[in-house]
Amino acid sequence: MIEFVAVHKFFGSLAALTDVNAEVNRGEVVVVCGPSGSGKSTLIRTVNRLEEIQSGSVLFEGKDVHAKLGGTALNRLRSRIGFVFQSFNLFPHLSALDNVMLSPMKVNGVRRSDARETALRLLDRVGLSAKAQNYPAQLSGGQQQRVAIARALAMEPPAMLFDEPTSALDPEMVGEVLSVMRGLARDGMTMMCVTHEMNFARDVADRVWFMDAGRVLETGAPVDFFRSPQHPRAQRFLSDLHSR
């Protein structure tokens, strides 16, 4: 469903992504892990073209996201890819409810009453129906991130991308966000998730991609990856994690 084909990306002369070839299948949960600066966030941001690439292609549902596209075609593609940011990026001038309702109405032309109904259902799903009228500034980090997930789900995307969704959270709030993500995975959502939460990777992921220095070095099942990583860099990464 999401396919990287010989993807290269440079920041100036620095290679951010080097020859990435990998695929996320429909209904699959892929966790991308690796040391900081290894290109995980850059990689996930190429899927909806928040980052440009220099060569290769990224396919979403068979369509090349980085082809020469008219603006509307790209907007339509993006509206079908749910994206959750590390820093939530809720719209602070809108209530939680309006955050979730805005894009279905303005991008997809959904009627206000329908958008409202969907938004309330989604806020309920992430456990925040009581906070619908609150503004982002009145919500905790964990609550904001759950609203952000509801906002992404409101566009009814066939796949969801998570860019370190719990890295900016206080430890006691990580659980509530992960449990929403576990629920999504259980419901069969296609997910690509950059995270340092190795327990989440172990329990929920169908496959773990390990990245270092802009390359995807391993793409195995979590059991294999955690028990017997093949690449020396992955072995060192995991032993560093354990020794913490």
């Binding site: 909806n48 928040l50 603006g71 509307t72 907007n75 339509r76 993006r78 509206s79 079908r80 890819i81 994206f83 940011f85 820093s87 990026n89 809720l90 719209f91 805005l102 894009s103 303005k106 991008v107 997809n108 952000a148 906002r151 992404a152 566009m155």
Partner: peptide, 14 residues
Amino acid sequence: PKGQMDAARALGHS
């Protein structure tokens, strides 16, 4: 913050 534009574009807004 740049994330505001990113979030809006990621949701499909022009």
